[in-house]
């Protein structure tokens, strides 16, 4: 396939993200990468579970967590996963403007999630003096949840970069795989949050 066909395809195939060898490679490679990320988060979860009662005399999870805030954050992030699905649906239908709209909604939801997370950390630090250094639980909590937050931030910067870069030229076979793997990444972040919600917050509250 010539470069011209990739950048300005006469007709978009049904699965533009896998229409070129480069796209196929990106698609598969990214799934493998997510496999590695799974081990990364599994290791962090394991560490957290080993240290979740190590409060060193400071506040424990039951005292700290408020499920209302976490519920709002969960809803924001889960909804953002849904809106990124809509974006990919429109990508497959070659409807660039609608894809951009839904990606925009996804990014907005992601940023508001991050805002809540920052507030949550601020709250723990100032109300409870529960910090990264105050106890092993603190170290494990901020590391696990912070790694996730860092992933959210990276994903947001990534999607925004993609949107800005391609705003003027629309979809082609070169950028479709990029949008697609970015949305895969976003789903992965969401799945990790589901586990954080369960293992950290729910089990922290009632476990």
């Amino acid at each position: 396939m010539s470069n011209e066909d990739i950048l300005n395809p006469k007709q978009m195939p049904h699965e533009p993200e896998k229409a070129t060898l480069e796209g196929k490679n990106k698609f598969l490679g990214f799934w493998f990468f997510l496999g590695g990320e799974t081990v990364l988060f599994a290791s962090l979860f394991g560490t957290f579970l080993a240290l979740k009662d190590s409060t060193a005399g400071g506040p424990g999870t039951e005292e700290l967590f408020g499920l209302e805030l976490v519920f709002v954050m969960t809803m924001l992030l889960l909804t953002s996963s849904l809106t990124s699905v809509y974006a990919m649906y429109h990508m497959k239908n070659n409807n660039f403007s609608k894809m951009m709209v839904w990606l925009g909604v996804t990014v907005a939801l992601g940023f508001s999630f991050l805002g809540f997370e920052l507030y949550e950390f601020y709250h723990y630090i100032h109300e409870y003096e529960f910090t990264f250094r105050s106890s092993a639980l603190g170290s494990a909590f901020y590391t696990l949840v912070g790694f996730h937050g860092g992933h959210v931030l990276f994903g947001l910067l990534w999607i925004v970069t993609l949107m800005a870069r391609n705003a003027k030229r629309g979809l082609n076979l070169y950028n479709a795989p990029k949008f697609y793997v970015a949305s895969l990444y976003w789903h992965f972040i969401d799945v990790v949050w589901v586990f954080i919600f369960t293992v950290v917050y729910l089990m922290g509250k009632v476990g």
Binding site: S43, R133, G138
Partner: peptide
């Protein structure tokens, strides 16, 4: 390799940013 990545991060945080993953006095393990 991701397991090593995490292990190294924990050690980095303990040595350079004051976390207490491996500090038994603060509940570490």
């Amino acid at each position: 390799f991701p397991a090593l990545t995490v292990g190294l991060f924990l050690m980095m945080f303990d040595r350079m940013f004051g976390s207490v993953f491996f500090d038994v006095a603060a509940g570490g393990n």
